[in-house]
Design a protein around this nucleic acid. Structure first.
Length: 621
DNA sequence: CTCATTATGAGGAAACTG
DNA sequence: CAGTTTCCTCATAATGAG
């Protein structure tokens, strides 16, 4: 056994090997990178990489059907009652389809044929009567128009359903379909039945947010349509509402009233459209060595564990997002903390958790809170007109070398001190890109090990992968000191260690925090989509831990059944921790800041689903 | 193809001004 | 109080080099 409180203590210190110029040659920092130990398989023996298709259309394409054909098929069947079975039957009963597949040089045509024939047999036995009324069979193809598979170019809009003149009908259709597929799939993944999901979309419209759809399903259940599993518990909690909430919380346009101070409480009962106000200063419920601002809180009854859970995301999300997140996570008030109060870099984040907030303690040694304390050697070239003493948020990408050059030119061709206009230009860029002064008139971005240090990770934690990847992974991570401060209350509660379910693990900020707190992890089940991140976590784990680590790639594949299996195997989880993707919420995303319904950020609903599944599985223990 | 580099504002809230 | 300015943001797509 290892002494959990004292190993690897050099991770606390950041030591400069030289003047910072030296870039040590990359040595493999991890052991057993590719050695897939027995613990990389779960108890069912499933491999880690398996992932279900994300949509019906995609699914068939993955199965080897040409996309155009899939689209056409779905169109013919009708897009309101898409059913995997119908579609397979449709394809089976179209000999031209089979012919085309077999002639198309598909790499696995025989296997495909076998699959189709299998389904065909099933279809003959069971389902013909089932769909004979819907006109979903090839007849409908033929009496519609002369559907010629051989000359089909995939751009056939002759069915007249699409009045779209610009011949992008298929694209629109595809987009619409996959959007609907995704929503249905998300709802099904959350434990709803497919017909419930379909009904909700019909009621609320294609554009309804997922949260609205969920509400709609619950409302319909509460109205007595049906009861469905343990989720019906929520029908009686007032804030979930037994009534329809067919509005987008994100669309609240009400002028909001500001207030200062974190101590004030506000009803989160959804009876108003007031967005979630951010505290100023953003210090959370309390800070180390600052008992003055400490507050007490009372958790809603349904929020109380087990398990404890800890959720994180960006504080400055689009309007209404945090109200929605909070509503799903048992109406717990978020704790908004800017990590600039604990380290030298800002990081405004919201945390929703059901941990006690009394008797927290920080990691020691306390991290430096200013740039000069963290990196003394930058003082030498720091101009007096740069007033920064802390860094802005550490992001996922770094500035270009061209920018350093432009700034150098601008400064070289002006006096000392430079005119205000030049100062403003330089300061704007420095603040935007977190640049530091490394020479005369010379600024540069931080290095990966500096970011590791600021975020509270051991040095070289992300070493061994590309520099770009390191910045990306670190930029997406926790600030360890901040999270550890919140998790510190677990130490006395679990002297024998904890079992952790870690979602969206990334490079393992939560795990590092627990380790640095001296909390033993008996078992960690980690879900992380990024292969690089899984490797980083595995490397760190093998170096520092003796417990069991199970890595899973896709959160969607962590079904309620598998969760129940893990709960039985480990005797329950003590902590469910994770921050769901922020890239559709973050302000720096120019292209797809789509809010909580964005492609990645919508995975929040899986966080909710999984916490709830753990809750109910542990309730049955 | 992969990997690294570079250019690319919107959106929201706080601070400021009159 | 309304209008304006300032500030900040767990990013993505196009391009280029190998």
């Amino acid at each position: 056994m290892v002494d959990w409180t004292s190993d690897n203590d050099d991770s606390d210190k950041f030591e400069w090997e030289s003047d910072g110029e030296a870039e040590p040659s990359s040595a493999p920092a991890f052991r057993n990178l590719d050695a897939a130990g027995p613990s990389t398989l779960d108890s069912n023996g499933w491999a880690n990489e398996e992932a279900p298709p994300t949509s019906l259309v995609e699914g068939y394409v993955l199965m080897g059907f040409p996309k155009e054909m899939v689209l056409k098929g779905i169109k013919e069947i009708g897009n309101t009652e898409i059913n995997q079975f119908h579609f397979i039957v449709f394809l089976c009963l179209c000999p031209p389809v089979l012919t085309r597949l077999l002639l198309s040089g598909h790499s696995d045509a025989n296997a495909l044929l076998e699959l189709l024939l299998t389904y065909k047999t099933l279809g003959d036995d069971a389902a013909v009567g089932n769909c004979s009324t819907s006109g979903c069979f090839p007849q409908s193809v033929e009496d519609d128009d002369d559907f010629d598979f051989e000359n089909w170019d995939g751009d056939d809009d002759a069915d007249g359903r699409e009045p779209n003149p610009d011949s992008s009908g298929d694209e629109d259709f595809l987009r619409e379909m996959s959007e609907k597929d995704n929503k249905i799939k998300s709802l099904v993944d959350m434990g709803f039945r497919e017909d419930e999901a379909n009904m909700a979309i019909t009621r609320c419209g294609m554009d309804a947010a997922l949260s609205v759809l969920v509400d709609s399903v619950y409302a319909s259940q509460a109205a007595g349509d049906c009861h469905y599993g343990n989720l019906s518990d929520y029908e009686v909690t007032g804030s979930w509402g037994g009534r329809k909430r067919a509005r987008l919380m994100e669309e609240s346009k009400k002028k909001r009233k500001r207030y200062g101070g974190a101590a004030q409480r506000r009803p989160l009962d959804g009876s108003h459209e007031e967005p979630m106000p951010l505290p100023n200063p953003m210090v959370g419920f309390n800070l180390p060595n600052d008992r003055l601002r400490s507050v007490t809180r009372r958790l809603p009854q349904q929020a109380i564990g087990p398990p404890f859970f800890y959720y994180e995301n960006v504080a400055l999300a689009p309007k209404g997002v945090w109200a929605t997140i909070s509503r799903f996570l048992y109406d717990i008030e978020p704790e908004f903390v800017d990590s600039k109060h604990l380290c030298a870099a800002a990081r405004k984040r919201g945390y929703i958790h059901n941990l006690p907030i009394e008797n927290r303690f920080p990691l020691l040694p306390l991290p430096p809170k200013t740039i000069f304390e963290a990196f003394p050697h930058y003082k030498k070239w720091w101009p007096s007109w740069d007033p920064r003493r802390q860094l802005n948020c550490l992001q996922t990408s770094m500035s270009s070398a061209k920018l350093t050059e432009r700034i150098q030119c601008a400064l070289a061709s002006s006096g000392n001190p430079p005119p205000k206009s030049v100062q403003k230009y330089v300061m704007d860029e420095c603040r935007k890109w977190n640049l530091v002064w490394v020479g005369k008139n010379k600024v540069a971005h931080l290095e990966p090990d500096e970011v590791e240090y600021l975020l509270g990770f051991p040095r070289d934690h992300t070493r061994g992968v590309g520099k770009t990847e390191r910045f990306k992974s670190l930029g997406n991570s926790f600030q360890v000191d901040t999270v550890a401060y919140h998790l510190s209350v677990l130490k006395d509660m679990y002297p024998n260690g904890v079992n952790v379910l870690s979602l969206f693990t990334g490079i393992g900020g939560g795990e590092v925090a627990l380790h640095r707190l001296g909390i033993h992890m008996r078992a960690v089940v980690s879900v992380e989509i990024g292969e690089v991140n899984r490797r980083i976590l595995r490397g760190w784990w093998d170096q520092t831990q003796t417990g069991t680590l199970i890595e899973i790639a896709d959160v969607k594949s962590l079904t309620d059944d598998r969760i129940a299996t893990f709960v039985r195997r480990f005797g329950g989880f003590d902590l469910v921790i994770g921050g769901s993707p922020c890239n559709n919420l973050a302000g720096s995303n120019r292209h797809h800041r789509d809010g909580l319904e964005g492609e990645q950020s919508a995975l929040f609903y899986h966080y909710f689903r999984i916490v709830d599944a753990v809750k109910s599985a542990m309730g049955r223990m």
